[in-house]
Every structure is written in structure tokens, then in C-alpha cells.
């Protein structure tokens, strides 16, 4: 523990140590330990209610952890509001239900945080927004409102909106679970591109094809615990853990 505080390793993007989280009496996360180096891509999977989403939501303080430590990019996540703000500036998040702001155009969605939080002038923010909208292949929709877009388009806008803050870590909380099947690949393609650019990514997803292609490590969670951590090949083909094998057979065999 002491070494962590004294010599922050610049290669480490995220370190979680002994984290616990309760909802009332329910023990949602048990002794989570996780270290993510810069540029690493982590896929988190597991049955529903296993604490995957709760874990990544703790990383940017959408949920408060009850014990243990979380250090993001060398900044400790605690009650210090300054630290929370700093971490949120550097950590982008994409949600299952997109959560675009429906009363703003796509472009306004993208420039809002850079202008308010990073204090960018509007012109600069708009140029950047268009650049990222191009990256997610949707620049022609900039003046539309979220309600006029398909689910896949909305999720790509949400990715662009998060990227506009130029984060160093991206969190994905089941980004394709709310999408119609034919729209899943357009979102995954964008995520693959992002991974190829070297972004540090932590993705909660059941897209095992994506995990095989992109992940450096797959993490399997069950009942609030990390059960297994392995490179995708080992994870999918040679897991020795009973619960992992059971989960994999449930999602792969049909």
C-alpha cells in the first residue's frame, strides 16, 4: 500500500485495491483488486447482478466505494471533490442507454463539456467535435437531435461526446446491450478503431467476439468477486474455473 502512494508508476492507468461496496446489507463488491496499465483493453463479463457495472461505476464515482482504494492516473479517489473532478475529466464513460441530452443537438452534446469543463472556446470545441463525429462516422448528423437518430447512431454520438473531453481512460458499460442486433456491429467497429488507437479501455460487455479481437485481458465476475482474469485465448478455451465454464457455455451454446 505504501509503495503505491510513494511512487506512482506513470504506466499504470488504474489501480483498485481491496475495494468493497455495499448497497444496504447487500455486499455488491468483494475485495476487488485490479490493475490496468496504460493502453490496456480489459473486457469484464459475468452473469447479471455480478457487480460488473457497479465496479466500473466506482471508477468515476457514479457509485461510492465503502472501503479499499481506487487510484486513477495517480489521483486517489476519495471524498476530495477536487480529486473527483480531476478524475472525471480524464475518464470518459459510455452508457447502456446512451444518455445523450435530448434537448440539445448532437453537436451541442459534444461541445458542452469541453466548453464548460475544459473552458475551450466554442470554435475550437466545435472543430474537435466534428473531428470525433467523423471518427465515429456520423459527421452528417451533427445538427440533428438525439431523438432523430437510430440507437446505433446515438451510441456512436455518445462515444464521440465522451472522446471530446480527450479522456485517457474510457469506460463502457454494456454499450451494445440496448441495441437492435443489426446496429451492434457499427458500435463495436468504432470501439475496435478506438482500441487500435491505443486508448485505455475497460468494457463491460457480453460481446465475446469483440473480447477475442480486442481484449488484452478478460475478467470474469460473479457475486461481486473477480473469479478469473486471463488473456482471451486462455479464457475462452482453457478456463479451469467451473463457474467460468458454466457461464461461457450459457452465452456461447445456442
Amino acid at each position: 500500500m505504501a509503495t503505491l502512494a510513494q511512487s506512482p508508476n506513470p504506466d499504470i492507468a488504474l489501480r483498485i485495491e481491496g475495494m468493497n461496496k455495499y448497497f444496504g446489507n447487500f455486499h455488491a463488491l468483494r475485495n476487488i483488486d485490479l490493475t490496468v496499465t496504460r493502453g490496456e483493453k480489459i473486457v469484464v463479463c459475468g452473469p447479471s447482478g455480478s457487480g460488473k457495472s457497479t465496479m466500473i461505476r466506482c471508477i468515476n464515482r457514479l457509485e461510492e466505494h465503502n472501503s479499499g482504494r481506487i487510484v486513477v492516473l495517480g489521483t486517489e479517489l476519495n471524498d476530495d471533490v477536487g480529486n473527483i473532478d480531476e478524475i472525471r475529466r480524464e475518464v470518459g464513460m459510455v452508457f447502456q442507454h446512451f444518455n445523450l441530452f435530448p434537448h440539445m443537438s448532437v453537436l451541442e452534446n459534444c461541445v458542452l463539456a469541453p466548453m464548460l469543463v475544459r473552458k475551450l472556446p466554442r470554435q475550437q470545441a466545435e472543430e474537435m467535435a466534428l473531428r470525433f463525429l467523423e471518427k465515429v462516422r456520423i459527421p452528417e448528423q451533427a445538427s440533428k437531435y438525439p431523438g432523430q437518430l437510430s440507437g446505433g447512431q446515438q451510441q456512436r454520438v455518445a462515444i464521440a461526446r465522451a472522446l471530446c473531453m480527450q479522456p485517457q481512460i474510457m469506460l463502457f458499460d454494456e454499450p451494445t446491450s440496448a441495441l437492435d442486433p443489426e446496429m451492434i456491429s457499427e458500435v463495436l467497429d468504432v470501439m475496435v478503431t478506438l482500441a487500435a488507437d491505443g486508448m485505455t479501455m475497460i468494457c463491460v460487455t457480453h460481446e465475446m467476439g469483440f473480447a477475442r479481437r480486442v481484449a488484452d485481458r478478460v475478467i470474469f465476475m460473479d457475486r461481486g468477486e473477480i473469479i478469473e482474469e486471463a488473456p482471451p485465448e486462455t479464457f475462452f478455451t482453457a478456463s479451469r474455473n467451473e463457474r467460468t465454464r458454466q457461464f461461457l457455455s450459457q452465452i456461447l451454446n445456442h
Binding site: N60, R61, L62, V91, G92, N99, F101, L112, A113, L116
Partner: peptide
């Protein structure tokens, strides 16, 4: 939550 995650 989305606004929080963006740092607002």
C-alpha cells in the same frame, strides 16, 4: 449521471 461522468 452522463453529465457527472463528463465532469460537469
Amino acid at each position: 449521471e452522463a453529465a457527472m461522468a463528463l465532469g460537469l
